[in-house]
Design a protein around this nucleic acid. Structure first.
Lengths: 145, 145
DNA sequence: ATAGGTGCAAATGTTTTGCTGTCAA
DNA sequence: TTGACAGCAAAACATTTGCACCTAT
């Protein structure tokens, strides 16, 4: 039975545990600050003065592909703009990349839950779903008949 | 009574309605495709062949500041990384910019609601709160005594 | 008339990549 | 031994900005 559809198809290949990769992972796991690549780079340099920023980025990609860490993407790629200024949710198809509006009521109670959990003032939230859109799902069915 | 804290402190200044700005707004309102700045630029060029990409970006900023449109930021700024690979929510303080983990249960039922609303397969969701964190709230209190 | 806006091009800032030498397995 | 990985620097990329001219008000 093939399992090639598994999203968690991590590890697998012959990855080497270099000191650079180990240090980067350690830095990332020893902070709760959700650091940027550059901050990780500066921290890593305290231990490995010759490490390069490229190495940091490459290792972050490896760790991501192994599901060892996660990325909060505020960067990379490009912004998308929405002519509708009212709060609503979005769905991103990871097959075709399109972004859809999701017609469902706002879950405002989440805001209160988060306010309690953080002790801060929560003014808004952003909710984004990911998966496979209706069109791409149909196509998949046809292809696999 | 001062209202300088209003987040919706839009308009106000003497903004001109140039043809560039009008076209950009029209393009944005006539599509549901959540376009990128570059796509908007290409569309606008069909009408105003000499419009520049810089103008598109500048006008998107103006429209954003007027709350006429919204941005789905997948770009700009930089990525942040999280050593914790398990799904959880985040809170971004718009005062100090720090990102916090939010300790609250996952609202998985949202996934089902979105699946129904979109007709697609929803595999995950990303939920992010924005507001003022506990520390910054305290500071504000002290300052305004 | 004039402040705000435009086009153009250069600058910025983050992330990626080509190349060559190195090192973990 | 050798293929994955490192360092370095250049490239790529979206986005921003400085400047001189233009135009909506």
């Amino acid at each position: 039975m093939k399992v090639s559809h598994l999203q968690t198809e991590d590890k697998g290949k012959n990855k080497r545990m270099t000191k650079q990769r180990r240090i980067i992972k350690e830095i990332l796991c020893s902070t709760k600050s959700h650091p940027t690549a550059d901050w990780i780079y500066e921290e890593a340099r305290k231990v490995l003065p010759d490490i390069s920023l490229g190495t940091v980025y490459r290792n972050l990609q490896v760790l991501l592909s192994e599901n060892n860490i996660q990325e909060l993407s505020y960067g990379k790629g490009y912004s998308r703009f929405d002519g509708n200024p009212h709060p609503h949710y979005h769905f991103v198809c990871k097959e075709c990349g399109r972004v859809f509006d999701v017609e469902m009521p706002l879950a405002d109670f989440l805001t209160e839950a988060a306010a309690q959990a953080t002790g801060g003032i929560v003014e808004s939230h952003r909710l984004e779903f990911a998966g496979i859109c209706r069109d791409c799902r149909r196509e998949a069915k046809i292809v696999n008949h």
